[in-house]
Design a protein around this nucleic acid. Structure first.
Lengths: 198, 198
DNA sequence: TGTACATCAGTGAACGCGCGTTCACTGATGTAC
DNA sequence: TGTACATCAGTGAACGCGCGTTCACTGATGTAC
């Protein structure tokens, strides 16, 4: 059956959207084409009318998730409060429990480091993420560009590490403790002047 | 052919050792039984004389890697210098480039978060790692146990996040920049009094 | 405006391969007597 | 001390399943005239 072109484009988009979510949720090797296509409302056979291979789709999904992530940051105002709210959302239980709609790095960085094709896109994303983090928000007491970049890199490592660990840990209290300790550290660094508990 | 029992135990150990390295290197799904057994100097058939299943082996490897990691920390003296050297080694290019012999969390935390069986062991390991980090090294200016634990959790997140990101990034300069920025942050926190660049 | 034909996305059976797991067989070690 | 037998880890062929990918077929849409 032939379909009107806008419907085809729509399906293409839907596959990409669904796959981006599923890959972040279960990893590349945890998703198979059949269930992916079923989730997009199609059968597995037509997959290859839209994408060259699973590998290709994976790479495109990395790009898709990357642009989603950066767009998400834009929704926070470029103020101290915006910065703090962004950090709160990133280190929230909601984000921990919904990797499918969450940070690309936290979900797939490990797997990508073993995958040649998507690695270049991931590299670019980490660069853009750091750039945006350092330019989008005001960094208290940091005038030099280099210092802001350094802080943004450190913050990125803390954010990603905290979420990955909180997801790997079964004990709910401990998992929250990880998120909260890193949260209060980063809120201290993002907000006003240095606030430091003895 | 029947073999003397100590030889059998030796082979068992060798499989575990090799598997622990390979799993960290390529992930659970990136390793198959045949190549694993070949690397241990045996053929795939005898695998099931030593372990119940691949899944079981994976769980035992998490335990094995966990105890290796903690032992490694013991090799550093319980001094400020020891602490700093430990951090330097963790955030080194050598560690980044050799996940097989490196930190369990940095290598497998993501994959474990999707695997029921090994998750409990990973949880326990993260707990023990944080405990050991906070008790083994002197934390400048932290007298309260709670404060030390909080610092250890934050440091763990930074360490793990930095190594995972540095591995996911293709650009060598950027990858080193991530390691180095987090390194200088953590050396500041581990060494003497707070040292902070403007 | 109507008719004939080409196009092309969707469908589901089928293919091929890899991989976890099983199994019949081997033969040296350990044990019984 | 010697002989017969049980044991059990190793071997590699074989099994079964899942999954990525292909393919012949369908039939509505678009195009030619």
């Amino acid at each position: 059956v032939r379909y009107p072109p806008e419907e085809t484009a729509e399906k293409h988009e839907r596959i990409l959207e669904v796959a981006t979510r599923m890959f972040r949720d279960r990893g590349f090797s945890g998703v198979n084409i059949s269930e992916l296509m079923k989730a997009a409302g199609l059968t597995h056979g037509s997959f290859y009318n839209h994408f060259e291979s699973k590998q290709t789709l994976a790479s495109e999904c990395v790009l898709h998730a990357a642009s989603q992530s950066l767009t998400k940051m834009d929704r926070y105002p470029t103020t101290e409060t915006g910065h703090r709210n962004y950090i709160r959302a990133y280190l929230s239980v909601a984000h921990r429990d919904d990797p499918g709609n969450g940070c690309l790095m936290a979900a797939l960085a490990s797997e990508v480091s073993r995958e040649q094709p998507a690695k270049k896109s991931m590299t670019r994303h980490v660069e853009l993420f750091v750039d945006k983090l350092s330019s989008h928000f005001p960094w208290p007491g940091k005038r030099a560009k280099r210092a802001k970049r350094a802080e943004a890199i450190r913050m990125t490592a803390s954010l990603v590490g905290a979420v990955i660990l909180s997801r790997a840990v079964e004990d709910e209290a401990f998992s929250r403790e990880i998120l909260n300790e890193v949260l209060s550290e980063l809120l201290g660094r993002a907000g006003g002047e240095e606030q430091r508990a003895a």
